[in-house]
Design a protein around this nucleic acid. Structure first.
Lengths: 145, 145
DNA sequence: CCTTGTTAGTTACAAAATCAACCATTACAA
DNA sequence: TTGTAATGGTTGATTTTGTAACTAACAAGG
């Protein structure tokens, strides 16, 4: 190679983001997996319903930018474990409204608490200033803010 | 729910990291996929060999923190497409040294260029200061730096 | 030499994600 | 009112990943 090759993987933002995402998800992943046998998609659906109230599968798809087949399967799994129920909407019988059961709400509260705790630890480890900055930048990147 | 529920998904760092990682990988993913039919693991193996020179599969595993089965499959795929060759090492006949072919080096140069360009765009979009800060924080999180 | 343990890499099987095709229902225009 | 398209959601086939068990080669102690 004739040119100076100074571009490193550690400079490549998508790579860094993926590594950090993977590393940071790992420990929390263990929690909802071992405690409730949940997959990430299932945890996300649970969180959306717990945090933002009853909604349809496509509402979740829009909010979480998850593909509808993932949601469909996550909803089935959560229903099988009695964490949520569905009911067809009278206004439009294609849609079904999803609601957490009592057990689902308990799981949500529990996991939300763990998430908060986990987040607080990460924030502490990074330092509050850096953590806030990171959040702000990530929101921009994810097209969230 | 009796308590004030003010913890949002958009505050949860692992979630933000995943969203940002996914969003930022997407466009680049299209490039190596459509141009060379590569998967992410294959692109990473290619990059390591192109950037750091010949090495064995387990060298890559250590550097990239990828599981050895992923690498095994990526190496086979790259070999099938004639992007690399293997040769058993005389010193230790369990190991095989991986080297890019001419075609592999061409693909590497091409994709590295795209990666640099892509990274520059992201950096510009974020603003140089924020981008540098982001890099630094992500390296800490990924346990890289 | 033989056993026992370790490392490099592959393979087989299960779990999960992706993609396309598919119903049922609604919307809407001819 | 009927034909066509669009939407909400599910299912099945294919691809990709993850997990374990496996082979081959080396290492070291007896």
């Amino acid at each position: 190679m004739s040119d100076i090759d100074d571009f490193d993987l550690q400079d490549f933002l998508p790579y860094l983001l993926n590594q950090a995402a993977e590393a940071s998800s790992l420990a929390f992943h263990q929690i909802y997996r071992e405690r409730y046998g949940m997959l990430r998609t299932e945890w996300r659906v649970l969180f959306h319903l717990g945090r933002y109230g009853d909604m349809t599968a496509s509402d979740i798809a829009t909010r979480a930018k998850m593909h509808k087949t993932k949601i469909s399967r996550a909803v089935s799994a959560l229903e099988d474990r009695r964490f949520l129920t569905r009911s067809r909407r009278a206004e439009d019988r294609r849609q079904e409204m999803l609601s957490l059961t009592a057990a689902g709400r308990v799981a949500y509260q529990d996991l939300r608490g763990e998430a908060q705790r986990y987040n607080a630890e990460m924030t502490q480890a990074l330092g509050v200033t850096d953590a806030r900055m990171l959040q702000a930048v990530l929101r921009r990147l994810g097209g969230i803010g």
